[in-house]
Structures are given as structure tokens and as C-alpha cells.
Design a protein around this nucleic acid. Sequence first.
DNA 1: CATGCTCCGTACGCTAGCGTATGGTCGAAC
DNA 2: GTTCGACCATACGCTAGCGTACGGAGCATG
Lengths: 189, 189
Amino acid sequence: MGRTRLGRDDWADAALDALADGGLAAVAVEPIAARLGATKGSFYWHFANRDALVEAALARWADRHTDAVIRELDPITDPAERLAALLDATIGRPVANRAELALLAHADHPAVAPVLAAVTARRVEFIAAAYQQMGCTARDARHRAVLGYTAHIGLIQAQRATAGALLPDADRPAYLRFLAGVIRPPAGD
Amino acid sequence: MGRTRLGRDDWADAALDALADGGLAAVAVEPIAARLGATKGSFYWHFANRDALVEAALARWADRHTDAVIRELDPITDPAERLAALLDATIGRPVANRAELALLAHADHPAVAPVLAAVTARRVEFIAAAYQQMGCTARDARHRAVLGYTAHIGLIQAQRATAGALLPDADRPAYLRFLAGVIRPPAGD
DNA sequence: CATGCTCCGTACGCTAGCGTATGGTCGAAC
DNA sequence: GTTCGACCATACGCTAGCGTACGGAGCATG
């Protein structure tokens, strides 16, 4: 199991895994080497230093959880349907959420900050575009997008903070319906 | 300046400061000792270990930014007015927000988790009570409270992530009005 | 002015993780 | 089948921060 030789990508994948379930601090050379059954000797052949590993993990994350999702959803022409698909691809994705939280936790880190800023802007942009297509003004569309996105971010944070006690699973669908009703633009077409 | 002898409270205050502007990792004995112009010798007289210092900082935070605020606002009888006062005491408080973010960043830390859970529950409870007093059902009041609170948490996160570019200061009042309009219960009285 | 207690500084050992140096292994090419 | 280069292990030094041991300062009390 596992090739005998490791490539740069193997390290990057392992780094993203470590990020998701141990936070940024877990993106550490020696622990990951142990997990891969290798040593630092291998790592420093493929990467200059730890920062390079962090950046590789970040790039992977941005691609998988933002760029790829947008690429897949963009072809959907109906904006409401597109948003529904986004919700479906976003809600209740524990792995994605864990990496998300880990990065939010280090938003001021020099390597994390630019990636996070770009990803956040791109996502809100994507949502706002849909609302605008539904007939909202640019300003109103942006407000709805910001509300939807921040409500999502805030909810995963608060849910983790309270171990899910804030909003029991049984109440979740009702809350989501409430939220959708509140954000939905008035009439539109 | 600065007494020659330090007390337990001096260390706890310094720890809360360090937490606010350097995160949980900054609640470290030696750096804080240096900032206080003292050494570890002093610290280990007043505290058993670093964890005790973290807990002291946490307790201070919970009291100052939740218990004290609620104590002060609870006497306001009109629920709408009470919520307005809460908003006023919460929005745009950079120091409070920084500590907030630092703790959210370590929600899974064994010492942080229980404090954060209690604080979150207490705050949402406080907001929901106001909406219920305005005539909402318990369930609806809770939904509005969760939305309001998570939108707030999410916004400070996203604003930090984008260095404030997500919602420019000029657009902030308009967004807040939009949000208030959306959360406000239908008729009430 | 001796005694004792409170508070603090200094010096030390310990650990985890980063980064480097150096030599070894394995496959491919010739 | 030797040679070369890609890849990796071992061993080392370095740093920051935790925690401990111990001695000394300073003040109150008798």
C-alpha cells in the first residue's frame, strides 16, 4: 500500500488532510512525514520549507472548494436553480467545513490571508450575480449575498462552538426555510 | 509606572490583552512576562501553569463581554430598545471582536470550548427572549435570534478575511438597515 | 536586629518542530 | 555493469516555550 516513492502531490494532499483535521498548526513537516511513513529527507527534496507546503495546501483547497464548485455550477442558467445547487453542494459538508474553519482561524496568517480574501470575494460575487440576474439592483443583490454567505459562515462557527446545540438537527430544515424566505428577493420576473 | 509587585489579576489582564491581539498562542508565559517587565519566577508563584492563565483570561473575557453587557441591558423593558442597545454595544468594537475571533479560532480547545458554548448559548438566548417578548413564537424567535447572531459572527469573520473589502464602511449602514428590516418580526405589539 | 513569609529573578533541563549535511539506494541509460 | 541522477534516511544543530530548583530581596513582626 502507498508507493514506495513520494511525489510533491502526495505531500500536498497529506497537508490538506492535516489542515482539515488539525488546523494550520498540524501542517507540520515531521508529523506528516510520520503519517506518510517517510522522513523529512523526502520532504525537503520536494519543498523548500514548511511555508511552501502550507501554500501548496492552500492552493489545493481554493481549487477544490471554490474554483471547482463554481466551474461546475456556472453552466446552470436559471439563477434560483443555481443557488439551490450551491446550497446543496455546500450545506453539511463536514470535511469542507473543517478546512474552512481552520483557515478562518488564521485569517491573519501571511500565506492564508490573500487566498482567503480571494475565495471569499469570489464566492460572494458568485451569489450576488445570481440575485442580480433575478432582478435585484447591484446593491441589493450584494446585500443579500453578504447576508447569505455570512449567515452560513456564522452558523458553522456557532454550531461548532456549541457542539451543535444551537440549532438541533431536527430544527435545521425549518431554519433553512426561514432563512431562504427572508433572503429571497421580492418578486423578480 | 507599574507596581513593583505583581498580583494574579495583573497577569490575567495581560493575558486577556495578549489573547485579543495575538490569539490563544500569544497567551504564553515568557512573552507576557517580558511585556510586564517580570520573569517566569513571578508567574509560577501566582499560577500553577499556563493552562491556569488561559482559564483566567477566558473567565475575564466571558464576564466583560457577555455577563456585564447582559447585566447592563437587562433592565431595559422595551424589547426593541433593548436590542438596539445591544447592537450599539456590539457593533464596531474592534477589541471585543478580536478576542472573539481568537476564541472562535480555537473552539475545540478543551478550555475554550465550554466557555464559548456557554457564552454563545447565553447570547442567543438573550436575543431570542426579546423577539419572543415582541410576540414571536418561541421557535420563530429563536430562528431570528440565530440568524441575527450568526450573521454578526459571520460578518466579522468575512470582514477580517477580506480586510474589510467585502462591505465598505460607506455601505455598512445601508446593509445594517437591510438586515434589520429582514429580521424584524412582522407586526408585533 | 533576627526571623519568617511573600514575592521574584536566575539558571537549568526538557520537548517539538524547523532546517541542513551527508551518505546511501534504486532504476535507467549507455 | 558502471555511472548518474533522482529520491530518501539518519544524524545533527537550533529555537521557543514550558516547567522546576533554588537562592535572594524586602517587609513585617517580635
